[in-house]
Amino acid sequence: MPAMDEAFWANLDAHIVAHRQDGPEKAPAASLQSSPTLAVVGDAAPVPRRVASDWTGVLDTLTAAKSAAQQQEARLREQAAEQDTLLQELKRSQQEVRALEGLVREIQAQADAKAGELRARAEAQVGRVQAEASARLQAMETRVQAAERRAEIAEGWLVRIEQASRELLPSEGRAAA
């Protein structure tokens, strides 16, 4: 089994070198040299094993990826905290808006009630003023009618007095009058 493990690692090393982004021709010379020990698997040809320094690039990549993942996780936590804070603030704002809407409805209802009360008072006042004006007008019409009757009576009396005074005048004065 140890020979198989060494063959596996050797094949993996070869695969990594072949698929490097900068190409196998730019791989460090040390990585392409075989190590002093060769592994033999069954009847297969010996497979060269590369130096462990080839793995330092992979380890650096993994370390950088881990660091980037940690930084991303920290940013995500910060964003989540900010979003949570904003969400709480939004909920408070919505509650305040609902409370203010309730106050507005209550004030509107009070204003409507007050307006209705004032309208009723005004209508009652107008009714009283109209009734009082009607009563005064009626009283004045009654006075006018009474004055007209007195004037008619006075005219009648004046006509009678005039006739009586003519009758009292001597006959000569009657013809001239």
Rank of each mutant, 00 (worst) to 15 (best):
A68H: 07
A68Y: 01
A69Y: 06
A69K: 09
Q70S: 11
Q70C: 08
Q71Y: 09
Q71H: 12
Q71D: 15
Q72L: 08
Q72W: 06
Q72F: 02
A74K: 13
A74H: 10
R75Q: 13
L76M: 11
R77E: 07
E78D: 15
E78T: 06
E78W: 06
Q79Y: 11
Q79E: 13
A80Y: 05
A81H: 07
A81T: 10
E82N: 11
Q83I: 11
D84W: 05
T85G: 08
T85W: 07
T85D: 14
L87W: 12
L87F: 13
L87Y: 15
Q88Y: 09
E89R: 12
E89G: 02
K91T: 12
K91Q: 15
R92S: 14
R92Q: 15
S93W: 09
S93F: 08
S93V: 06
Q94D: 13
Q95V: 05
E96S: 15
R98A: 15
R98I: 09
R98M: 14
A99F: 06
A99H: 07
A99G: 04
L100A: 11
L100P: 04
E101N: 13
G102E: 03
V104D: 05
R105P: 00
R105S: 13
R105N: 10
R105T: 10
E106P: 04
E106Y: 03
E106R: 03
I107F: 12
I107K: 14
I107D: 09
I107V: 12
Q108S: 12
Q108M: 09
Q110V: 02
Q110N: 13
A111R: 12
A111G: 07
D112P: 05
A113E: 09
K114Q: 12
K114R: 15
A115D: 08
A115N: 08
A115P: 01
G116H: 04
G116K: 07
G116S: 10
E117D: 09
L118A: 08
L118S: 02
R119D: 14
R119Q: 14
A120T: 09
A120D: 12
R121I: 00
R121T: 03
R121D: 08
R121V: 02
R121Q: 12
A122V: 07
A122Y: 08
A122Q: 11
A122K: 10
E123S: 01
E123H: 00
E123Q: 02
A124H: 05
A124V: 01
Q125I: 03
Q125E: 12
Q125G: 00
V126H: 04
G127V: 05
G127A: 14
R128C: 01
V129Y: 04
V129A: 06
A131M: 02
A131P: 00
A131C: 06
E132S: 05
E132P: 06
E132Q: 05
E132K: 02
A133I: 01
A133Q: 02
S134M: 10
S134L: 14
S134H: 10
A135Y: 00
A135G: 04
A135S: 07
